[in-house]
Design a protein around this nucleic acid. Structure first.
Lengths: 151, 151
DNA sequence: AGTTTGCCTGTTAAAATTTAACACTTGCTA
DNA sequence: TAGCAAGTGTTAAATTTTAACAGGCAAACT
């Protein structure tokens, strides 16, 4: 995501969303598209309320249902430590385990795939005979841009 | 935590809590103790409402304030993916980064310190010029006991 | 001992967030 | 073209969290 051409970025996310829905036999309806596009206006996390405010149809169930669907489909992430949502930039790979880098200054979120760390995490879990099915990794901190701005 | 002698486990957690409060110049008051003991009845995550139900004084602000304090002091963890709380078993080490292993079957939570994985996560973040200050790692899955019971 | 100070509590509400329930619509497909 | 499953619209309500403010309590100072 860092320094993306965001118009392109958004366009390809939309294409990807259509493809994923197709593949799931689900519809990328107006409501779902509405939520998705709002989230993809930026790489910042938005709360359900933030999103609802920008929806055409502002009724809570509409928003929550769309969020639920998009999350289940792997198209967006629930950023649990903020109770907010952000578009997923690795939707292509439904089994990826992302590491969210959440800037507490500008609120942008980057997502990387820390292959080595993940395999260590899994190894550590297996050591306890724990069988993982879902992994959340979230880091709060200061991003590159804000680091440079401060210095 | 796995297969702990829980009476001991709880006792030492209480001692530790008293020590931490002392060190912080804060008081381990009745309300805080109440929440803390409720959480330490088990290694299961409890929601604020669950806890409130068992409190002597069941008023929301009492519970939320105590939770907030215990969390800030590193005595409990907020399990963000469940929006629930659990006692921290590494309170001694205030800078530790824990990996929570959350059993979706029995709801017990174990916490381990995956040193290697964490250093990889930090490395991955630094590669993006991201300076982390707080890291959350949560895994949902099936624990040892439940694995054995099923097989 | 008396008083100040800061932390902590009690209490009343209210705000914010999320879900339930149910009737209706839409698009596929048999 | 009827029937089914998926998705919507709508009304409320449940749940979760916070605000605000008055009062109490313990340690620190005089």
């Amino acid at each position: 995501m860092t320094n993306c051409d965001h118009t392109l970025c958004k366009t390809s996310a939309l294409k990807e969303a259509e493809r994923v829905c197709e593949q799931l036999g689900a519809r990328f309806t107006d409501q779902r598209r509405n939520v998705f596009e709002i989230l993809w206006q930026s790489h910042k996390a938005m709360t359900a309320a933030d999103i609802m405010n920008e929806m055409t149809n502002k009724q809570p169930p509409i928003t929550y249902r769309a969020l639920e669907f998009l999350k289940k489909s792997g198209l967006i992430h629930h950023v649990t430590s903020l109770n907010a949502y952000v578009g997923c930039i690795h939707a292509k790979d439904p089994n990826h385990i992302g590491q969210l880098l959440i800037c507490t200054n500008c609120h942008n979120i980057d997502e990387i795939e820390p292959k080595k760390a993940v395999s260590e995490l899994i190894k550590a879990a297996k050591n306890q005979d724990f069988t993982p099915s879902l992994t959340h990794i979230e880091m709060l901190g200061i991003c590159k841009t804000c680091n440079n701005a401060t210095s």
